[in-house]
C-alpha cells in the first residue's frame, strides 16, 4: 500500500508498504530517518518515541497505515520544531515544508561540528549535562522531554520522572537525564 503523511514538516510518501509494517519501520527503512530507535519493538522502552499529531507515541506500536494524513515529528526534526515553537509559530506542524530561499542564503556552517548551532534547548542540555552515554535511548527521551517542557515549562522532579517513565535508559541511571531536563527548562525560563 501507499502511505502519505507529513514528517518533520515535509510531505512524505512511502510505497510498497506491507500492511504489517510499523510507523517505526517505515521511518527507519523506507524514509531514511533512523533516528527513532528500535530497542524493543514492543512499546516498553520508548526509544522510538515520536510525536503523532503532537502526542508522544511509540512508533513501533503504530501501524504505518495509521499515520496516513497525519503529522509526525521525529528526533531529526526536533530542533526545527523547537525553533518554530520559540518563534511563536503555533502551527508548527503546518509550516511550509523545506528550507526557504532566505533561510538557505542565511545558512552558514556551524563551528564545532555538524549541527552544533542547530540543537534545540533539550538536545543541547542533554549534551551539556552528560545525559548521553551510548545514546540509544536518547532520541526517544528527547522527544518525550521536549513535549513535557512544551506543556509544563516548570516541571518538578516528580513531573519529570512521570513524563519519562516510559523511556528506558540502561547507561546513565537517569540522574544526568533529570539534570538535563531541569537545565533545559531553566534555560527556556531564562530565555522566555
Amino acid at each position: 500500500m501507499r502511505v502519505n503523511f507529513t514528517v518533520n514538516g515535509r510531505p512524505q510518501q512511502a510505497d510498497d508498504v506491507w500492511e504489517g509494517e510499523s510507523l517505526l519501520y517505515v521511518l527507519r527503512e523506507r524514509l531514511g530517518l533512523p533516528g527513532s530507535k528500535n530497542a524493543c519493538e514492543q512499546g516498553e522502552c520508548g526509544s522510538c518515541t515520536v510525536r503523532l499529531d503532537g502526542l508522544p507515541v511509540c512508533a513501533c506500536l503504530v501501524a504505518a497505515g495509521q499515520a496516513e494524513g497525519r503529522e509526525v515529528v521525529t528526533v531529526e526534526g526536533l530542533a526545527e520544531h523547537a525553533r518554530r515553537r520559540a518563534a511563536g509559530d503555533g502551527t508548527t506542524a503546518r509550516a511550509p515544508a523545506g528550507t526557504s530561499l532566505d533561510e538557505a542564503r542565511r545558512w552558514t556552517p556551524a563551528p564545532g561540528g555538524p549541527g552544533a548551532q542547530a540543537l534545540s534547548p533539550v538536545q543541547q542540555a542533554f549534551v551539556d549535562a552528560g545525559a548521553v552515554q551510548c545514546g540509544f535511548c536518547t532520541p526517544g527521551l528527547l522527544v518525550a522531554a521536549d513535549e513535557l517542557i512544551e506543556r509544563n515549562p516548570e516541571p518538578s522532579d516528580a513531573d519529570i520522572r512521570e513524563a519519562l517513565s516510559g523511556n528506558l535508559c540502561r547507561c546513565t541511571g537517569y540522574e544526568t537525564i533529570l539534570d538535563a531536563v531541569r537545565l533545559a527548562a531553566a534555560r527556556a525560563g531564562e530565555a522566555g
Binding site: S36, L78, P114, A118, L119, V127, D128
Partner: peptide
C-alpha cells in the same frame, strides 16, 4: 576536565549511525 563527548551532537540529532541503522 569534563570535556564533552565528540559523538554527543550526533547522538542528540539522531544522526549517529548505530549498527542497526546501517543500510
Amino acid at each position: 576536565e569534563s570535556a564533552p563527548r565528540p559523538d554527543g551532537t550526533l547522538k542528540v540529532t539522531g544522526e549517529f549511525a548505530y549498527a542497526s541503522d546501517l543500510w
